[in-house]
Design a protein around this nucleic acid. Structure first.
Length: 654
DNA sequence: AGCACGCCGACT
DNA sequence: GTCGGCGTGCTC
């Protein structure tokens, strides 16, 4: 017998191995196996079998799982994801399959058979050790023994068709503020839990939105609320795994690591703020967990709720197409916005613009909290020499450098490398350095100068969890100025009176075709979380955008969809970014031509840029491909395997 | 991805 | 003359 094994490696290809006699009876698709690969042993996944002796092939070392730890619907989800994201199935399965070695630790043997009575209540690992793994496999396949887990005491067996798929499960786009969303989610969850079913709920992160929902839902459903996340330590994580797999009446909360979690009687999936970037996994298998959840609901025939105050524009198209039903309650409407227009770059003010200072002062006099949003966490992210006019760029990768004052470092925005700041231009040595595009550090410095006796807090995505917790107490304390980045939009517990946006309009420059959508989401989600009574937007006159365009979601998404449709951008087409990187220009040009030929043969058009000459003689090309992935999946798989080529499906910024 | 092989520059 | 830098390509 020959098995085809997929590895969690960036190769779209499977490898064939022979199966020794002792393992033959147990071979099944989607079992993990240990095999020799190159000079090491590696864990892969059986994705196919065929007859034959495979005399010229290497043999598998052992089968790891006693039965496939994934059921048919999750297999379909994995296969869909592999296709959709042009990613090797092995990389997908690494995310979809729990580590068998972890599972074994919590399993015990159970038997009524006299012949193997000695094994009763023996931990599985011990049983493997004492009898040999293949012997235990044989006992299991002969029905002599079974296993139970330590958390539920229930039998650990392959997933059977447990759920009752709905005829026409509803897909709901719920547009509303956080209070209404929580009430809606709670009502949906309650119905399902009462009938003994389970609900899976995806959240963008663990520490802010995760904590908020965990606490709110625990008040309602007590110990029937579980969390499943990557940051969890072994035992707690496995408890959720086993309970979700065999108990009913639970709501399982998790972040991007849970769209593949096997769930018994899964009746509903909820995705909170599907538009958040945290749902994107950037390592190895680049997926969007929110999108996987939607596909999972489709495959499992269960309803799904996407809830947000600022959903991605594409879902409004799906509403128009009839694929989603829109529910709209309690949106943040009739919000007045005060604009503070300034004539010059904020950094050219001695302190801060007077009107801004007065606004903050007026709020503080009312004894209320003020939140100030700015898109960057550092001091400044655009540093230029005034003499030679050159921009400070990373010596390693040419990325734009930010200045981080508290450590006096220049930090590359692309590769994160830090360099000591020498206070002069690296090109001409001049000491006339100009900073612009200010961030939270700059604001904190200036505000501390002006408001010497006011409590000022600064938070960003890097703020330790402990500090974020203490923010909860801010609501009852003396008037505070809270300076923060986008993380402010997640602090549902914080009540502020005045919200000020500073540098928000700069998002337009960095966001590609999604720039305005991003601006919409940042603005609306800040309002959603902080629920301020007064909103101020500080903008430079020449960069001014009209805030009211973003404050009515119905007109906003209609306009936005119109633009996307004319320019042929998602959701009207899919995008793929093919990046080629080579040390020599000739080698790169060869690969690029090869790719162009393949694309042409498929009758497709790609938009190419390059070669961009990078530092250290690295040449880079990028090709943007537009179209329906199903049509050219085969060529993209071939392109994926070319050395020096990377493919990114649904790129964020182009 | 990771790792061995291989082809050019600075050294005892 | 070699040692080791990293670029290239293969893995059943």
């Amino acid at each position: 017998m020959i098995v085809h094994v997929a590895f969690p490696l960036p190769i779209i290809k499977t490898f064939s191995y022979a199966v020794p006699d002792n393992w033959k009876p147990f071979v099944k698709r989607f079992l993990s196996v240990r095999v020799p690969f190159k000079h090491k042993t590696l864990t892969g996944f059986i994705v196919d079998m065929e007859e034959g002796d495979g005399a010229n092939l290497k043999e598998i070392i052992e089968i790891i799982d006693i039965f496939p730890l994934i059921h048919d619907r999750l297999v379909r989800l994995s296969e869909w994801a592999s296709c959709y994201y042009i990613t090797p199935i092995g990389l997908v399965l690494k995310y979809a399959l729990p580590s068998s070695l972890q599972i074994e630790q919590y399993l015990t043997v159970r038997t009524n058979e006299g012949s193997v009575a000695i094994l009763n209540n023996v931990p599985l690992k011990k049983a493997f050790h004492a009898f040999g793994k293949d012997t235990i496999f044989r006992y299991y396949s002969e029905g002599l023994i079974e296993f139970y887990d330590l958390f539920t005491g229930k039998t650990f067996a392959p997933f059977t068709s447990d759920h009752e798929p709905e005829e026409k499960p509803e897909h709901i786009l719920y547009v509303g503020d956080i209070k209404n969303r929580l009430a809606y989610y709670t009502a949906c969850i309650s119905t399902h839990l009462e009938s003994g079913k389970n609900v899976l709920m995806l959240l963008p992160d663990y520490h802010t939105t995760g904590r908020y929902f965990y606490q709110a839902l625990s008040e309602q459903f007590q110990n029937r609320v579980l969390w499943y996340g990557a940051s969890m330590k072994g035992k707690a994580r496995m408890e959720t795994y086993f309970r979700a797999r065999s108990e009913g009446g639970l709501v399982i909360l998790g972040n991007k690591s849970c769209p593949f979690l096997p769930i018994y009687n899964n009746a509903l999936i909820i995705v909170e703020r599907q538009e958040e970037d945290e749902y994107r996994n950037e390592k190895g298998f680049k997926f969007n967990a929110g999108l996987l959840a939607i596909q999972r609901a489709e495959i499992e025939h269960i309803p799904i709720v996407l809830g947000s105050a600022a959903p991605s524009v594409e879902y409004f198209k799906y509403v128009e197409d009839g694929a989603f039903n829109l529910i709209e309650t309690g949106w943040l409407k009739n919000r007045t916005c005060f604009e503070i227009t300034i004539g010059k770059n904020i950094i050219s003010y001695e302190a801060l613009p007077e009107e801004l200072v007065n606004t903050i002062r007026a709020a503080l006099e009312k004894k209320v909290h003020v939140a100030i949003y700015t898109p960057r966490k550092d001091y400044s992210s655009y540093i230029q020499c005034l003499e030679c006019k050159k921009l400070f760029l990373c010596p390693l990768c040419d990325g734009i450098m930010s200045y981080q004052k508290h450590e006096d470092l220049l930090i590359c925005n692309s590769c994160n490398k830090g360099y000591k700041y020498e206070e002069r231009c690296p090109y001409c040595g001049s000491k006339l350095i100009h900073f612009s595009h200010i961030g939270t550090e700059y604001l904190e410095e200036k505000l501390r100068h002006i408001f010497t006796d006011v409590q000022i807090m600064k938070i960003s995505g890097e703020t330790p969890k402990q500090d974020i917790k203490t923010l909860k107490n801010v609501s009852n304390s003396a008037p505070t100025i809270i300076i923060g980045t986008q993380i402010l939009s997640k602090l549902y517990n914080l009540q502020v009176n005045t919200l000020i946006l500073l540098g928000w309009e700069e998002l337009r420059r960095i966001g590609g075709f999604r720039a305005e959508e991003k601006m919409f989401q940042v603005l609306i989600n800040l309002l959603d979380a902080l629920n301020p009574e007064e909103l101020y937007i500080v903008m430079e006159r020449k960069k001014r955008v009209n805030p009211s365009y973003f404050l009515d979601f119905k007109t906003f998404y209609k306009e936005e969809l119109k633009k996307r449709s004319t320019a042929e951008f998602p959701p009207y087409t899919r995008l793929f970014l093919i990046e080629v990187e080579k040390k020599s220009e000739e080698a790169g040009a060869m690969v690029v031509n090869k790719i162009k030929d393949m694309i042409e043969q498929e009758g497709l058009t790609g938009y190419m840029t390059g070669p961009l000459i990078k530092k250290k003689k690295k040449y880079r090309w990028s090709i943007i491909l537009k179209g329906n992935a199903a049509l050219f999946h085969k060529s993209l798989s071939l392109i994926y395997n070319l050395p020096g080529v990377r493919i990114e499906a649904d790129p964020l910024y182009i």
